[in-house]
Design a protein around this nucleic acid. Structure first.
Lengths: 189, 189, 189, 189
DNA sequence: CATGAATGAGGATTCATTCAT
DNA sequence: TATGAATGAATCCTCATTCAT
C-alpha cells in the first residue's frame, strides 16, 4: 500500500496504468482491488494520505512558544520542505483538491478536514500574533493564513528560477508581514 | 474553433472526448484534425488562446498614468474578472502550466511568453511604484508581481466562502502593500 | 450485423468473446459498439432477430385454406425445420426467454410479441379446428397451441436418438390429436 | 456442500462467483476446491445431486398398484411439485442438460442415468397402460413418456399465466390421453 | 474542405484458482 | 483440514485517430 503511493508521484492520473502501479508496488494487479475500490479511490486515498502525513509533520513541529515571526518561518519551511520532497504530490493536492470535493463520501470529509488542519496550523501562529497586537486585527487569522500559504505556493511553484536570495522564507515573510511598501523597518518582530 | 474551446472549460483533459468536442463545436470529428494535430494540441491551443485573450484584456486596460495602488487594483480586477467568467480555463492554466512546459515546440514558447506577459503587466505597475520610491526596492518587480498574482489566485480560489468584505481587491492590496502587520496607516498611496 | 448473428449460434453467452464476434463478423471490435450498447444487447438483439425470422417464415407459410390436421403438420414442420438449421438459436430462445423477461425496455416487448406471434400462428390453426367442431372446445386454442409447441420441442430435443418412424410429425400430431389412448381411429381428420 | 447447492438456484452459471458460493456455504473459498475440482464440477455435481433427489422422490412415491391414469397424475404431480419448489434447479436441468453431455467422465454418466431414470419412472406407468391395452401400442412407452414430460414442462413453464382451471394435472392428462380431439369421453380410465 | 463510420490499441476490472499459513 | 489473501489471465469497453466518400 505504501509502495502503491510511490507511483502517483511520478505521473498524472490518466497517465498512470494500474499495471504500472502493480508492478512498482510489486503486487498482483488484483491485489490493488482488495484495498481500493477504484482507480480513483486509489488516487484519492493516496493524495489524502500524503496530506495527512504533512499534517502529522506540522503537528510534530509545533511552534507554540516560539516568537511569531520565527514560528511562521518554521511552519512555512516545514510545509515547503515536505512538498519539495514530494513535488508531484504537491501538484496532485493543488490540482485535485477541487475534484476531491466533487466526490461524496468520507474521502471528501477527510480531505476537507486535512486542508482545514493545514490552514489552522498556520492560522494558529498568525492568531498568536494578532492576540499579541503584533499583527493587524482587521482580517481573520484564517484569511491571512490562506494568503500566506498562497505565497508559499507561489514561492515553490513560480519562483523556482529566481535567485535563491529572493526566495528565502525570510524574504517571503518580510513581504507578508511588512508588505510591498515595507520601507520603515525590517526584522522588527 | 471558438466553440471547441467551450468544452475544456467543463471537464478535465482526460474526461473530455473528441466526440463531445465535435458535437459542441457542431463540426465533424475529422474536422478537428484539420486544425489540430492532436488532442493535446487542441488542449494547449485552447489554453494558450485563452491566456492570450487575457493578455489582450490587460493590454486594453492599461493603467499607465494611474496612481500605483489604483493601477494594481485595476489590474488585479481585470485578471480576477476574466477568470471568474472563465473559471475552468483558470484551473486549466493553473494546473496545466507545468505540463505545457514538458512539451517542446512553439506551443511551449507561446505559453511561456504569455505567462511572462501577464507577470510583466503586473510588474510594470509595481515597477512604477519602485521607481517612484513608493514600493520597496529590495525585490525585483517580477518577484513582487508573482506574489501578488499568487494572492489573486488565493483570493479567487481559496477564499470563495469568506465574507465579501475580506475578499475585496482593496483589502487584498492593503495586505500586499502594507503587510500583515500594517499597523501604521492604510490607504496612504 | 448479419454476420455477428452467426457467432452466438456456436457458443454460449459467456463463452463468446467480442473479439471472436468481431473476427467472425470481420469488423473492428469498436464497430460492434456502434450498433449494440452492450454484449447483452448484441445477444438479445440476435435472439430476437432470429425469432422474428421465424415469425416471418410462419407468416409466409400460412395454412389458411388447408385442412386442420394438414395445417398443423405444416406449421410444426416449418418451426422444426427452422430450428433444425439454427439449433443453437433454438437453444438460445428456449433458455434465454426467461432472462429476456427480466430486462426492461423495448427488447422485452419485442421478445414477448414474437413469442405470442409464434403461439398465435399455431393457435390460429387449432382455433379453426375448434370452430369446425373438429377439436374439443374445453381448452383455449392458446393452451393447446402451447402444448403442441412443447411436443415439437420434445420431439426435436429429447427424441433425437429415437428411430425416425416415431419422430415423424405425423405421429406426433396423431398423439396430439387423438391422445395416448387413441385406440379408435387414426387419420380421421 | 448442501449449502453450496443453494447458490446455483438463484443465478446463472456465469453470474455465480465462487466468493458468493463460499459466503453462502459459510466456508473458505479454498475449501470448495477440496471437494470439487472445478467451478464446472461444482455446478454439475449440484445439478446431478438435485436430479437424484427427484429420482429418490419418484421412487418413494411409486404408483405400482394404482390405476394408470391415477398413476400418471401422481407421477406428474410429484415431478411438478419437486420443481416448483426448486424452480431454478429446474431451469438448470432443462438448459444445461446439453452441456452436461459435452463433458466426458462419470458425471456425464450419472446425468444420463438420472434422466433415464426419470423417463423410466413415467414410462413404467405408461407401459402398464400399454400392457393393459388401455394405451395405444404404436409408440414405445419411452417416447410417450418423453412427450408427457414435455407437457409437464410446458405446463410449468409456459402456462404459468393461464387460469388454474386449464393447468390442472387432470386437464393436462386428459389432453395427453384423449388428445386434442377427445370428443368421445373423458375420465374413462 | 468536411465528414463520421470504422478501427484496434490500450486499460480498468473481474474472478477462478493457488498456496502459504 | 481449512482458510482467504494474492494472483494475473482473460475480457469488456472506450476513444483517439484515420480515411474513403
Amino acid at each position: 500500500m505504501q509502495a502503491a503511493e510511490e507511483v502517483f508521484r511520478t505521473r498524472q492520473f490518466h497517465e498512470v496504468t494500474l499495471d504500472e502501479v502493480a508492478r512498482v508496488a510489486d503486487v498482483g494487479k488484483g491485489t490493488i482491488y482488495l484495498y481500493f475500490s477504484d482507480k480513483e479511490d486509489l488516487f484519492f486515498q493516496t493524495a489524502v494520505a500524503g496530506f495527512e502525513d504533512m499534517c502529522g509533520l506540522l503537528h510534530a513541529n509545533a511552534t507554540d512558544g516560539v516568537p511569531v515571526r520565527e514560528g511562521l518561518v518554521r511552519t512555512c519551511e516545514t510545509i515547503s520542505g515536505f512538498f519539495r520532497k514530494r513535488r508531484p504530490l504537491f501538484r496532485l493536492i493543488l490540482t485535485q483538491g477541487e475534484r476531491a470535493l466533487e466526490r461524496g463520501g468520507s474521502l471528501r470529509q477527510r480531505w476537507l478536514e486535512r486542508r482545514k488542519q493545514m490552514v489552522a496550523a498556520v492560522a494558529a501562529v498568525v492568531g498568536r500574533g494578532i492576540a499579541a497586537g503584533e499583527i493587524r486585527s482587521g482580517l481573520p487569522a484564517e484569511v491571512l493564513a490562506e494568503y500566506l500559504l498562497g505565497m508559499v505556493r507561489t514561492r515553490a511553484w513560480e519562483l523556482e528560477d529566481q535567485p535563491e536570495a529572493w526566495r528565502t522564507h525570510g524574504a517571503m515573510l518580510d513581504l507578508f508581514l511588512y508588505g510591498a511598501i515595507g520601507s520603515h523597518t525590517t526584522h522588527r518582530l
